[in-house]
Every structure is written in C-alpha cells, then in structure tokens.
C-alpha cells in the first residue's frame, strides 16, 4: 500500500471520527445531512458484501468493519437518540436522495465490469458514493453559516477523495499488474470535483481565520 492510499484512508477515517465526536460529545447533529448519512451507509453495505467471503488483509477487514459500524451508529444517533435527533435540521435537509439511488442502480446494471450480483452491487456503490455528498452540500448552502466540526468533516471527506486520485495515478505507474479502472476513476474524479467549490470557501475561511460562510 502506498502513502497516498494510506493518507486517503486516514482522512476518511478522521472525517467519520470528527462527525461521531461532534454527535457524541456535543450531542448535536446540527448541519449534518441525514440523507447523505443514509446514502453512505448504503454505499458501505453494498460495497462490503465480500467482507466475510473474501480476505484481503487484516487492515482491509478492520477498516471495513469500522466504516460499516460508524455509518450505522451515526444513523442510529440521528434517528433514535433522544437528545441528538432533536438537533437534526429536518426542514432544511430536503434533498430527494431516493432519486439518486435508482439512477445509480440502473447505471450499475448497464455499465459494469462483470454482470454478477456482487459486481453490480459494488459498481452501484461506486456510483452512489460519487453523488452521496450532494444532500450535505445543499444543506451547507442553505445553512450558510457552517460550524467548525461540520466544515472539517466535509473538508476531510474531500481530502480523502483527492488523495485516492493521487493513489490511482501512483498505482498506475508503480504497479506493473495494475490495469485501467475507468468506472472507479471517472466516478472518483466526478466525486472530487463536487468538492471544488466547497474547498475554495473552506480554504479562504481558514486563511483569513474567519467562520466558514457559503454564498447564497
């Protein structure tokens, strides 16, 4: 495993931990999109179907368990925890996320590397992950004033995607057996581009040491 891949996984892990920290210690999920969290839980559930059938490494299995466990506990907190769920911005978080799921499933049925259940589900998770952040970005845009932890959460997620792209470029040149993976690459690139606008405002706010505020 190369340094970019590891750094990508670590920023991904940190993003989830920042979110859980916010929810667990402040007992608030204000500014967090439940729609995006539901999509991520679905992404992990669909992608990690091989968790008990195919062994890659201890690292791989442990990380998969962490991502599955954390995404479903975030859902539990936001839907069931009696204090946390009251801070959920339900009226602002109105993105029709179900309309993302169906096109991704259709696309996975049409464009995949192998027409098997596991492979189609894996491809579906790749497509869905590319757009899963949209409800969160729309919610940030609506709230405009973004608190520090929510800003850091989205920033870390974007950093994870950016590092994965560098990891693919590195693997392409460094590993002789590594072939082209258009489905993952194009989806990953699209996903990273979705963060570009947010990144611009986030970095400016850090540089000027002011609270992150998105334009209307």
């Amino acid at each position: 495993m190369n340094i970019f891949r590891l750094a990508g996984d670590m920023t991904h892990l940190m993003s989830v931990l920042v979110l859980l920290l916010k929810i667990h210690t402040i007992k608030s999920c204000a500014g967090i999109s439940l729609k995006t969290q539901e999509l991520y839980a679905l992404v992990f559930a669909a992608r990690y179907l091989d968790i008990f059938t195919h062994y890659y490494s201890l690292y791989n299995t442990v990380m998969k368990l962490i991502f599955l466990g954390s995404s479903f506990s975030i859902l539990w907190y936001m839907k069931r925890h009696k204090v946390v769920r009251r801070s959920y911005d339900k009226d602002q978080d109105t993105f029709r996320h179900h309309f993302l799921v169906l096109p991704c499933l259709v696309l996975a049925l049409l464009i995949n590397e192998k027409f098997t259940f596991k492979e189609v589900m894996w491809t579906f998770s790749i497509y869905l992950e590319a757009v899963a952040i949209l409800p969160q970005l729309v919610l940030l845009q609506r709230t405009r004033n973004v608190d520090n932890l929510t800003g850091q959460y989205v920033f870390l997620l974007g950093a994870y995607r950016g590092l994965y792209i560098i990891n693919w470029i590195y693997r392409y040149f460094a590993e002789p057996t590594y072939s082209t993976h258009w489905i993952t690459w194009i989806s990953g690139l699209l996903q990273t581009l979705l963060y570009a606008d947010f990144f611009y405002y986030y970095i400016n706010s850090v540089k000027n040491n002011v609270r992150l505020q998105l334009p209307a």
Partner: peptide
C-alpha cells in the same frame, strides 16, 4: 483481467 482486482481498496 479479474474484475475483483481493485477491491483491495476501501
């Protein structure tokens, strides 16, 4: 090429 090759990533 094995379609499951990239699955070592998360």
């Amino acid at each position: 090429h094995d379609g499951t090759k990239l699955k070592d990533e998360l």
